[in-house]
Amino acid sequence: MHEMGIAQELVKIAIDSIPDDIENPKVEILNLKIGKLASVVEHSLTFCFEIIAKDTPLEDARLDIDFVPVTVHCKSCNNGWELTGPVFKCPFCEDGDVEMLTGREIEITSLELAD
C-alpha cells in the first residue's frame, strides 16, 4: 500500500548513487534486501517501480530482492533461532523477552549498470 513511496525512494537513492561522470547510465539490476516481516509486497513494489522508473536511468531495470528471514534472540536464555511464523515466545525457556535481529530490512544494497 505504501509501495509507491518506497519505489520513489528507490529511484531517488539509485539515481543519487550513480557517479556524475557516467554518460547516459542505464541501470540493469537494482539489488534489494527486504525482511520477511517488512510490510512490502513484491508484486506491488515491482508494479510501482516500473511506473516511477519510466524515463529515468532505471527504466526497464529489474529488482533483484534478497528476502531476509526473521531471526530473533532470547535475552533470558541467550538462544537464537529463525521464526517460521508470527509467534515470538522463546521455545527454549518459554520467556517472552525476545528481540528481533533481522527481518525488517528495506535496503538497497547495490545497482548494476549496463556496459
Binding site: 539509485a14 534489494l32 535496503e107
Partner: peptide, 13 residues
C-alpha cells in the same frame, strides 16, 4: 559495473 550503495530506503523518514 556494480555500484555499492548499502542504504536504508526509509532513511529519509
Amino acid at each position: 559495473m556494480e555500484i555499492n550503495i548499502q542504504k536504508k530506503v526509509l532513511e529519509a523518514n
